[in-house]
Nucleic acid binder design. Sequence first.
DNA 1: AATAACACCTGTGTGC
DNA 2: TGCACACAGGTGTTAT
Length: 270
Amino acid sequence: MPELPEVEVTRLGVSPHLIGQSIEAIEVRQPQLRWPVSEQLQTLVGQVITSVSRRAKYLIIETAAGCAIVHLGMSGSLRILPKDSPAEKHDHVDMTLSNGQVLRYRDPRRFGAWLYNELPLEGHALLEKLGPEPLTDDFNAHYLKAALKGRSKAIKLALMDNHIVVGVGNIYANEALFHSGIAPTRPAGQISIKRLETLVEQIKRVLADAIKQGGTSLKDFTQSDGKPGYFVQQLSVYGKSQQPCPNCGREIATIKLGQRATFYCSRCQR
DNA sequence: AATAACACCTGTGTGC
DNA sequence: TGCACACAGGTGTTAT
């Protein structure tokens, strides 16, 4: 489900309901997620939530006694509900709050994670090797040029590589490359600085626009108020196999790159 | 070191 | 209707 915009929309939605609340209970119905749900999360019971931040697609719920690191995987979602709401299938974790609400985690495919960690998070194995956040100034054309130097792999795969830049998943990699006029198959190391400037600009624009629109709802993603993400209406190539390119009308091509569906216009993208 | 393939898991849609 | 199969928003691990 979620790429950076959907995770950020989730964070913005749940954060006001969490900050300042104390955690009354953490109930784990299904501990088998990507990794076993940390039993140490119980350390957080009785603690007050001080912040909800994001690094890449990881959400970090902080208290003075440590934090929960939450990842939504492919199908995870977080909602705020009244504490007595009946749990349904795939509702694996509940964090009950002192304001009578519950933060509920649903994840049918169970690729997500709920981990406990002490603070600070410096040196955490899952976080320390991550590339820059795409919406910060650390992610710029000069950085990207250096990071891609000598790389033979396809630019789309490079954009989806967390060591190079975080948060760009399959939807937004396809979209940003389309808006940049760059073929997804182009070897990453042979793209000019000029074109990388455009690419960086488009990645930032696409991600920021998607956040503004409440993310992209392909299937079941909703904002915390239950509304879908409206960026789906602005997709140009993702999921548009055989439909006309919005720019030139040529049929959108579909190929596989790194086992993932890839959509592009072979006339507009070179 | 870099790249590519595989693994994890459930639900849904398609074609026979 | 049933079945087999492909595919889905991610990413750490393993193999090449």
